[in-house]
Design a protein around this nucleic acid. Structure first.
Length: 424
RNA sequence: GGGCAGGUGGCAGAGUGGUUUAAUGCACCGGUCUUGAAAACCGGCGUUCCUGCAAGGGAACCGGGGGUUCGAAUCCCUCCCUGCCCGCCA
């Protein structure tokens, strides 16, 4: 969420940001309305506060007279009228502020200057690592997975629905191995604190990271109780310090958590539905960082490197894509996608999305820090990235390391975790 | 799920309708004193919003929301959370 002051004082930069996302035409009415609402709000506040000051003074006078045994009924009646006027003005103020809030929720973050303008055709590959394997003869992961009895897709669909995966035997162990490999790497070598968090969160948390109110239809909601299943550990982890003021010494903060992730994928029916490419429940290790504003860009490079390190450990060829403004997520100011090559399906698969949100999320979740004692609190910058999402990594492993005899070689770094050199 | 007790500033902790601009202590910051430090003393000590070039002025905030009243931390309703007891349970 933007500060209304952004609309008031930096309207040109805001409009330019929306233009770079290709969203200005759509959002211009929202911005114009916000400008009007802001003027209206401030005017109402002035009036209401004058009346409140008058009421406060009058009420005190009533108290004084009563104490002195004098009559105050006339003054009381006047003050009552004042109170009624205040109530009316405050009701309209509440409406105005709700409208402002709603408008602000509709405006995405402004991307950093280094982000190319335009739609996804302007995404740029900034670097790549490893050599993609030639596609010939490589079977798609769902075929290998079923042949080696690592996956049981039909039974997953039976007990839960399509898009819910059952892993079994070495496949199940592979999931656990990936979790341990990634968490060990991030905690031991990258300095992250490990968290284990609830997968059910409340509406406030979902709003803090920006999933709500705009993307409610993509979330699984509990019916008998309030609450949502998290679509990513970003939600509980980023909101961990919501409403708090941190000490400067705590920054940068680096947190990591494994969690299952639940996504309805509304509107994505029929797209990449085979195998592990797009599922409703999957596992992921997430990285979250909080930092000072001046460190935002550097911290994004650092975080992206931590996600890349997992792919390098696994020996999977990948590329780093800088998303253009129009393809950058709603709350994000700059995003790198990590795409791993899966020769069986012949596609680059997105296994991570690393973003810096500037103060956009922090303002929503109200996460601040005090740079020095006595200074005013300011919003932190938040960052996050998957490192990594499991299913597509598993798909890439089953395809990239596939052998002519149908077996799959386990990459070195994973062997002690899986307890085998190859899956056969 | 039922009952009881609570939720006040960074922390502790007063305050049950009107000089409360929320006492007091601790912590923290500045100063005096000191060679330096400690102690002592003096001063400061929150967040948000509106207004103003500024100095300043004003408003709101005692778990959230609503109500009663001229006036609410204080009374009422409701929700949330914490602790304890009972019940249930992996």
């Amino acid at each position: 969420m933007h500060d209304i002051r952004m609309v008031r004082e930096q309207a040109a930069a805001l409009r330019d940001g929306m233009r770079r996302r290709g969203a200005l035409d759509q959002l211009e009415p929202v911005i114009a309305r916000l400008e009007a609402l802001d003027r209206e709000r401030r005017q109402t506040i002035q009036t209401v506060e004058e009346k409140k000051a008058a009421r406060n003074a009058a009420s005190q006078e009533v108290g004084r007279r009563k104490k002195a045994g004098e009559d105050a009924s006339e003054l009381q009646a006047q003050t009552r009228t004042l109170g009624e006027e205040i109530a009316g003005l405050e009701a309209s103020l509440t409406e105005t502020e709700a409208a402002i809030q709603k408008g602000l929720y509709d405006i995405p973050n402004v991307t950093l200057p280094t982000v190319p303008a335009g739609d996804e055709t302007h995404n740029t590959v900034v670097r790549s690592w490893g050599t993609p394997r030639a596609a010939d003869g490589v079977k798609p992961h769902w075929e290998v997975g079923e042949a080696l009895k690592l996956l049981d897709l039909p039974r997953g669909a039976k007990i839960s629905g399509s898009g819910f995966i059952v892993f079994r035997s070495a496949g199940a162990r592979l999931v656990r191995a990936l979790m341990n490999l990634m968490l060990d790497l991030h905690t031991r070598e990258h300095g992250y604190e490990e968290l284990w968090v609830p997968v059910v969160v409340n509406r406030a948390a979902m709003t803090g990271t920006g999933q709500l109110p705009k993307f409610e239809e993509d979330m699984y909601a509990l019916t008998d109780d309030q609450g949502f299943l998290i679509p990513t550990a970003e939600v509980p982890v980023t909101n961990l310090y919501g409403g708090e003021i941190l000490d400067a010494a705590q920054l940068p903060m680096a947190l990591t958590a494994y969690s299952p992730c639940f996504r309805r994928e509304a509107g994505a029916a029929g797209k990449d539905t085979r195998g592990l490419l797009r599922v409703h429940e999957f596992d992921k290790v997430e990285l979250v960082r909080y930092c000072r504003p001046e460190d935002g860009a550097a911290q994004l490079e650092l975080l992206t490197g931590h996600a890349e390190a997992v792919l390098q450990k696994l020996g999977l060829p990948y590329r780093v894509v800088l998303l253009a403004a129009g393809d950058t997520g709603f709350s994000s100011a700059m995003t790198y996608d990590l795409e791993v090559f899966a020769p069986g399906v012949g596609k680059w698969l997105e296994v991570s999305s690393c973003s810096v949100f500037t103060d956009y999320q922090a303002r929503r979740a109200n996460i601040r820090f005090r740079a020095a004692p006595g200074e005013k609190p300011q919003f932190v910058y938040t960052l996050n990235g998957s490192a990594l999402a499991f299913p597509r990594v598993i798909a890439a492993l089953l395809e990239h390391y596939q052998q002519p005899d149908g077996s799959v070689v386990v990459p070195e770094a994973l062997r002690s975790y899986v307890g085998a050199d190859s899956l056969r």
